[in-house]
Amino acid sequence: MSDALLTVENLSKSYQGVKAVQGVSLAVAPGELLAMIGPNGAGKSSCFNMLNGQIKPDTGRIRICGKDTTGLSPERISRLGVGRTFQVAETFLSMTVRENVQLAIQSARHGTLSLQSFFGNLGRKSAAEADDILDLIGLLGEAGRSCRELPYGDIKRLELAIALAGDPKLLLMDEPAAGMATRERMLLMRLTSRIAKERQLAVLFTEHDMDIVFEHADRIIVLNRGQVIAEGPPVDVRMNADVQAVYLGSGALYKQEH
């Protein structure tokens, strides 16, 4: 896949002799949602943290938009157009909803140590753009509220808004549905896929909720003990005997195909 937005080749990482990730390769195209699933400890988080720059891989190459990002810091990687959400949402609790987004826009556009970042009140900068993003996410009504007062579902959505504020080309979402009610989960994922298609974003996400994975992922990649054991469209993956053995089980815990 030469037109892929994200390509990962032969990524490996060990901790004190334990191989967390071994030779993982993958690619995500613009507008595509790729789900990464697998048992706990399969290496999903390590993979994510390497893509994001939080840890450095032992071997392998990561390319984002054709640029080699292997071993760059999270700040640098974010500047190359990578947005990220966390399993437990991370937002700035002491600020208002709008300020959260404004800061992300400001940072993406001007950096945080440019001369102009010392002048003027952030509250007056790029307010209109921030409101556009909040509107898209459905949080405009809460723009002036303190982030601390929001229910968790809204905080998860705000996190997506912050990730989108930097106008990313690639979105990394670590268990986007964790901690949300079933309906909220579906709404959030529907919104994510709509935005991904409209803006031609590449999305890589991990998830344990198979209902979400099977409904929203264009492709699925399955990890076990740090290695890729299956890859393909949802239909193929759910029928794959290996995947059933290590991960999916008998199927009592997610919706069956009708």
Binding site: T91, S94, T112, L113, Q116, S117, G120
Partner: peptide, 22 residues
């Protein structure tokens, strides 16, 4: 209340989120 001050506060609130917005 300048963008710099907000960035500083952002780091206090959530270092991880701060890093991912640059």
């Amino acid at each position: 209340f300048s963008p710099f001050g907000y960035s500083l506060r952002a780091l206090r609130d959530s270092p991880m989120r701060s890093a991912t917005i640059g």
